[in-house]
């Protein structure tokens, strides 16, 4: 199972990185979202997987009696999902606002901070 997941994770990463290498902001945002999923799956896989046994302690016992899924990566991923979601929203709005203000979604044309053919810094004192 883990080896199959590892290959899937690799695929997730490859797709997300390919998307992030695009020139269009919206595709970069999509890439970042997939990247978040890829990272979550990586953590999940690295913590080893068990099928269908959630890390919940049954009633009337104080510790899990059978082997349960590893709770630690789950706790890490749970918060990570929410955070990457807010991050995704932020990037999306940023891309949207940049499109509104600059009239383009091509990163090559966004040159307010680093204008083309910028001169030297001042040579005086």
């Amino acid at each position: 199972m883990e080896s199959a997941l590892s290959v899937l994770v690799g695929l997730f990463f490859a797709v997300s990185i390919y998307m992030m290498l695009s020139k269009h902001t919206i595709r970069i945002v999509l890439g970042v979202t997939i990247f978040g999923n890829a990272v979550n799956l990586t953590i999940f896989t690295a913590g080893r997987v068990l099928r269908e046994v959630p890390p919940i302690i049954p009633e009337d016992v104080v510790t899990p009696q059978t082997l349960v899924a590893n709770p630690l990566p789950q706790a890490l991923i749970l918060t990570a999902i929410v955070i990457s979601f807010s991050f995704f929203c932020f990037l999306l709005v940023l891309a949207y606002r940049a499109y509104q203000e600059l009239g383009t979604d091509d990163t090559d044309e966004m040159r307010v901070a680093e204008p083309k053919g910028e001169g030297l810094p001042p040579l005086g004192y």
Partner: peptide, 27 residues
């Protein structure tokens, strides 16, 4: 090819990770 290299690398890395014995102290 850049994306593919990264993906392949991470797959190999993860495969290597799951092949070492698991330390379950924290869990």
């Amino acid at each position: 090819s850049v994306a593919g290299a990264c993906g392949l690398g991470l797959t190999l890395l993860l495969l290597r990770v799951i092949q070492v014995p698991f330390d379950s102290t924290l869990s």
